[in-house]
Design a protein around this nucleic acid. Structure first.
Lengths: 158, 158
DNA sequence: TTGCAATCGCAACAGCGTCGCAATAGGGTC
DNA sequence: GACCCTATTGCGACGCTGTTGCGATTGCAA
């Protein structure tokens, strides 16, 4: 799970568009590649490499973990995929097709929420002012309590 | 590296104070425990369990990794130590003695900077407003570029 | 000094990710 | 459609981080 994409994120909305991007690159369109992409398109959020290898739900034939990791890394280099570290446990992969996102993870319900980077710009400025850091939450998300869990917790504490 | 401390962070400034806290708790003061604490006091920031086991610099006799992990976890339950995930790689442990801290990690130079929680309160409010999350950066830090590296990067890009 | 439970250290294991290498299979060419 | 070349696959093994089981050791209280 090497960092740093080699290309800018690329936009697409279709699996065939991605396959064409691969072909245009001189890459082969193998069965495994197709299945990894199908799993990513089928997922409704970031998913682990293992989940993809198992076919998310056991639908498709199980793929070799190594190949899945290699393809995800390959896709990441091409700007088709990127990954997030949502806490302990495995890294999670998402299609980059709809532009960059940043993430928030609830420490209690473990839900991973994606937001447009501009949503966090005010927070980014505050961090810049307070600590001099230019923060990015696309690879390592913000951790905390989502509103639902925060509500539940404070109700319990009362 | 189980989460959730069992006690509130406790304050202390001295290794003997900590040893007394252990004794007061009915815990034994073993050689291994003493060495782990010495390593934590000697470190000038968060350190990995392996670094502690190796004696930071090979000064003390190497300790068993398992024992180090078990002691760190034990100390964490007592509110003496807590740990941070600074990126890929191993978790990092710090004494809790001087109160809670939150962390920022530079994605480029990998330096881990600790700040008082109140420094990030404005950012926390901005996140609360923008996404409804109550953010905590004490266990999973903020990632980004520190001012030095951000400066170096923008200079290179020019 | 003795006795016993807390702690230790070793060996083994689990999860995540990577590497090396021989076998397979895309896909261009004839 | 057959052929060839090499990108890609899948297997086995490994590395790192952390955990578990268990017999041996050792604090420490009596």
């Amino acid at each position: 799970m090497t960092d740093a994409p080699h290309r800018e994120p690329r936009s697409f909305s279709d699996i065939d568009e991605v396959l064409d991007m691969l072909r245009a690159d001189g890459d082969r369109v193998s069965a495994a590649r197709r299945l990894v992409l199908e799993a990513l398109f089928a997922a409704d959020g970031p998913v682990s490499a293992d989940a993809i290898a198992d076919g998310l739900d056991g639908q498709h034939m199980p793929l070799d973990r190594t190949s899945v990791y290699r393809n995800l890394e390959h896709f990441e280099k091409l700007g088709i995929v990127h990954h997030v570290h949502a806490g302990h446990g495995a890294g999670l992969y998402v299609l980059a097709g709809s532009g960059e996102h940043e993430y928030l993870v609830c420490e209690r319900c473990h839900r991973v929420q994606a937001v447009e980077p501009k949503v966090l710009d005010a927070a980014r400025s505050a961090i810049q002012r307070a600590a001099g850091y230019r923060a990015r939450f696309s690879h390592f998300p913000i951790h905390g309590l989502c509103s639902t869990c925060a509500g539940a917790t404070s109700r319990l504490q009362r």
